[in-house]
Computed example of a mutant assay.
Amino acid sequence: MNLRALVSVTGKPGLFKLIGQNKGGFIIETLDSAKLKSIVNLSTTKMATLEDITIYGDEEEIKLIDILENIKAKGEAPDVKASGNDLREFFREVAPGHDESRVYSSDIKKIISWYAIIKELPIFEEEAPEPLT
């Protein structure tokens, strides 16, 4: 799975594709059909690639990429409007060992909504590029 160009931007709902950089910041594009472009100034806004996101685990952090792979293997995810108990039970299956006291229902809903956005994209078939050394 290749999540390198997909980013989450603080204060903006949804996910974005990083498409370039200019002197004002990074150029991002929405992943929906509108394909709206905007510029993110990193001095005022935080941005994180999905590849770098982790969640709290009981023993060690769990990579988002692993959780998304587990959701894909499961076949489907619950609706984000499902009950908190249903969401937590599902998350126990796809993210075993997560720290239930520090991973909130809102975090689970966000991950499930991100999966809904990217599940149809070809990123699940793409190999992640090798890290730069």
Rank of each mutant, 00 (worst) to 15 (best):
G25H: 04
G25T: 08
F26S: 07
I27E: 15
I28S: 04
E29W: 06
T30Q: 06
D32E: 08
K35P: 07
K35I: 12
K35V: 11
K35W: 12
K37D: 09
K37V: 12
V40A: 02
V40D: 01
S43G: 11
S43Y: 14
T45Y: 01
T45P: 00
K46A: 05
M47F: 08
A48Y: 15
L50K: 02
T54K: 12
T54S: 12
I55D: 01
Y56E: 06
G57Y: 10
E60S: 09
E61N: 11
I65D: 11
L68N: 00
K72F: 12
K72C: 07
A73H: 07
A73F: 11
E76D: 04
A77S: 05
A77E: 06
P78G: 13
D79L: 14
A82I: 05
S83I: 14
S83M: 13
N85V: 11
D86R: 04
D86K: 09
L87P: 01
F90L: 13
F91C: 05
V94C: 09
P96R: 02
G97D: 04
G97V: 03
H98F: 08
H98D: 04
D99G: 09
S101P: 00
R102F: 15
V103L: 05
V103S: 04
S105Y: 06
S105R: 15
K109C: 07
S113A: 10
W114V: 05
Y115P: 01
A116N: 13
I117L: 08
I118A: 03
I118D: 00
